[in-house]
Amino acid sequence: MSLSALVLHKNDNVATAVRPLESGDSIDVEVADCAVKIVLLQSIPFGHKFALQDIGWGERIIKYGETIGQATASIKKGEHVHIHNVEGLRGRGDRP
């Protein structure tokens, strides 16, 4: 069966869509060998991320088990996670 999204590390709080996903879809993702179901609150384009849990303002975004940035808004489980609600601690391509 084709996968919908990948989680790279057990500590991650985001998953990456590996096909286009629609708002309202109920997505099965595997986190550390456990199946988790996430209902998407927004459509997620291929290659983009969504939240596996609620993430508060200023909290770290974790992918690969590492910090990839911090939330600039509170993010709900199932929401799209990208430059509109995350900023890098080191750099972000849309601004210096």
Binding site: Y64, R92, G93
Partner: peptide, 29 residues
């Protein structure tokens, strides 16, 4: 060139990469 301001590139962002950290962590893996 300020790499912190130019990475990830617009194409990377369109592809779903949000920050420089994310791009680099995926590469060094």
């Amino acid at each position: 060139v300020d790499m912190r301001g130019s990475e990830p590139s617009p194409g990377n962002i369109e592809g779903g990469l949000t920050t420089l950290e994310e791009k680099s962590l995926g590469a060094v893996l």
